[in-house]
Amino acid sequence: MFDACADPKSIEGLTWAACYLTSGKHIDFYWSFVTVLLLLALTAPAALAMGFAGATAARSRFLPISILGKGYAAIVRGVPDIIFFLFFVIALDQGIEYLKSLAVCEDHAWPWQGLEFRVCPEAKVPLGKSSAFWHQAYGFGLAVFTFAIVFGAFAANVLYGAMNAVPRAQLETAEAYGMSHGQVFRRILVPQMWVYALPGLSNLWMILIKATPLLFLLGVKDIVYWARELGGSKTQAYEYPHPDWRLWYFLGLLVFYLIFTKVSEIVLARLSARLSHGQATAAGEAQRKAAA
């Protein structure tokens, strides 16, 4: 990075530390924090959308759809999430390759043969000859989808509860004004439910932040991967030899997560105060009394 870093073995002290912390691998490490933030930025809206669809389905008056919506939320809650993460990623990967093999392969043999999952080379996703970037991107995409499915189930549960918490009289009044079911849903129910959903959703956001290290289990080169890689002891063969520093790297990750959750807590508390303003809830009433 800097000219002074050309020969790392000859430098010492602060210069060494500055060179060490800006080495190529460390830059990759810093980028992996962006990966984590990107995962959160993509997963949160996706999970919210899945949750909204699930909650709306669960409220449906058509029984099979209602069962589908409720079943989706119920199954995910009884099982440790890590099992879903391990299961969905392989299952999705194989499902995609199987569907693609139906389209592009000549022989349509059943791919699960004995101890192997075999499809023709053209059906591999991504193709064997694709660059490492595409393999990483595909892995990341699968991870986002898996996170969205699992967290969508939890969001569905929260939103379902929030929809039921909107006072019945509000909906009845809207119906008395002659609004259709769709109009009641769009104009009355959805705008009012957020204040009830917020505590559950903020809890979920905290959980989502703390779930991001699981990316490592899904084979994405995330912060845990780099912390292990960079922290491991380096012999003289490396440019920057050092003993086992993994403890310090993980301590750094711990602090990163602590700061992240603390900042989220503060922002969510403000948002909650904002949303409660003028609402007929205990928090809204407290605000009214404080102002008066």
Binding site: K210, P213, L214, V224, D244, L247, F250, L254, Y257, L258
Partner: peptide
């Protein structure tokens, strides 16, 4: 705050290294 604010996954790694 420390144990609720950080992922259990990282806590395991940290404890093992320590």
């Amino acid at each position: 705050f420390v144990f609720r604010g950080s992922p259990l996954f990282i806590q395991f790694f940290l404890a093992y290294e320590a």
